[in-house]
Lab assay of single mutants.
Amino acid sequence: KVTYHVPNEEFARKLYKKAVDANLNVEIRVENGQFIIHIE
């Protein structure tokens, strides 16, 4: 399980798409202006 803290929405979207394309379980949320992405 990996967690990324991404300040940039564009990068967060790319990361999310890559994980989904790889059939990984992804959860994304915004906290204090940062995008928190959990990948399992």
Rank of each mutant, 00 (worst) to 15 (best):
K1D: 08
K1S: 12
K1W: 15
K1V: 11
K1L: 09
K1P: 11
K1N: 11
K1Y: 13
K1H: 11
V2I: 12
V2T: 08
V2G: 06
V2Q: 08
T3R: 05
T3L: 08
T3G: 04
T3F: 09
T3D: 06
T3A: 04
T3W: 10
T3I: 12
Y4F: 11
Y4D: 02
Y4I: 14
Y4S: 03
Y4K: 01
Y4G: 03
Y4A: 03
Y4T: 03
H5K: 13
H5I: 15
H5E: 06
H5Y: 14
H5V: 14
H5P: 04
V6R: 02
V6Y: 05
V6W: 07
V6I: 11
V6N: 03
P7H: 14
P7D: 15
P7W: 15
P7V: 15
P7M: 15
N8L: 07
N8M: 08
N8C: 15
N8T: 09
N8K: 03
N8Y: 09
N8G: 04
N8D: 10
N8H: 05
E9L: 10
E9M: 08
E9S: 04
E9G: 06
E9W: 13
E10P: 02
E10K: 06
E10I: 06
E10N: 04
F11P: 03
F11D: 14
F11N: 06
F11S: 13
F11I: 15
A12E: 03
A12F: 08
A12V: 06
A12M: 07
A12P: 02
A12H: 03
A12Y: 07
A12D: 03
R13H: 10
R13E: 09
R13A: 07
R13G: 04
R13C: 15
R13P: 02
K14R: 11
K14P: 03
K14W: 15
K14Y: 14
K14F: 11
L15N: 02
L15E: 05
L15F: 07
L15M: 07
L15P: 03
L15C: 14
L15G: 02
Y16Q: 03
Y16P: 01
Y16M: 05
K17H: 06
K17E: 10
K17L: 09
K17P: 01
K17S: 06
K17N: 09
K17F: 08
K18R: 08
K18M: 14
K18S: 10
K18T: 08
K18V: 09
K18L: 14
K18W: 15
K18Y: 13
A19I: 09
A19K: 02
A19L: 15
A19Y: 13
A19T: 03
A19R: 02
A19P: 02
V20K: 13
V20W: 05
V20T: 09
V20R: 09
V20H: 06
D21I: 08
D21L: 12
D21E: 13
D21G: 07
D21Y: 07
A22T: 02
A22S: 07
A22D: 05
A22L: 13
A22W: 11
A22F: 09
N23W: 15
N23E: 05
N23F: 13
N23S: 07
N23Q: 10
N23H: 10
L24I: 04
L24S: 01
L24R: 03
L24Q: 03
L24Y: 07
N25T: 11
N25C: 13
N25D: 07
N25R: 13
N25V: 12
N25L: 13
N25Q: 12
V26D: 00
V26A: 09
V26N: 00
V26P: 03
V26T: 01
E27P: 00
E27C: 08
E27Y: 11
E27W: 13
E27I: 11
E27M: 10
E27R: 06
E27G: 04
I28G: 00
I28F: 10
I28C: 14
I28K: 00
I28A: 01
I28R: 00
R29Y: 12
R29S: 08
R29W: 12
R29V: 13
R29F: 12
R29N: 05
R29I: 13
V30S: 05
V30C: 09
V30R: 07
V30W: 13
V30Y: 14
V30G: 02
V30F: 14
E31K: 05
E31G: 04
E31Q: 07
E31F: 08
E31V: 11
E31A: 07
E31N: 04
E31R: 05
N32L: 06
N32K: 07
N32P: 02
N32W: 07
G33D: 04
G33M: 04
G33H: 03
G33C: 07
G33Y: 05
G33F: 05
G33N: 05
Q34W: 15
Q34K: 11
Q34C: 14
F35V: 05
F35E: 00
F35T: 02
F35S: 01
F35G: 00
F35W: 15
I36S: 04
I36A: 03
I36M: 05
I36H: 04
I36R: 02
I36T: 08
I37H: 00
I37S: 00
I37D: 00
I37W: 01
I37N: 00
I37E: 00
I37R: 00
I37L: 08
H38Q: 13
H38M: 14
H38F: 11
H38R: 10
H38V: 15
H38N: 09
H38E: 15
H38Y: 12
H38L: 14
I39A: 01
I39K: 00
I39Y: 02
I39W: 05
I39S: 01
I39G: 01
I39D: 00
E40P: 03
E40F: 15
E40W: 15
E40S: 14
E40C: 08
E40I: 13
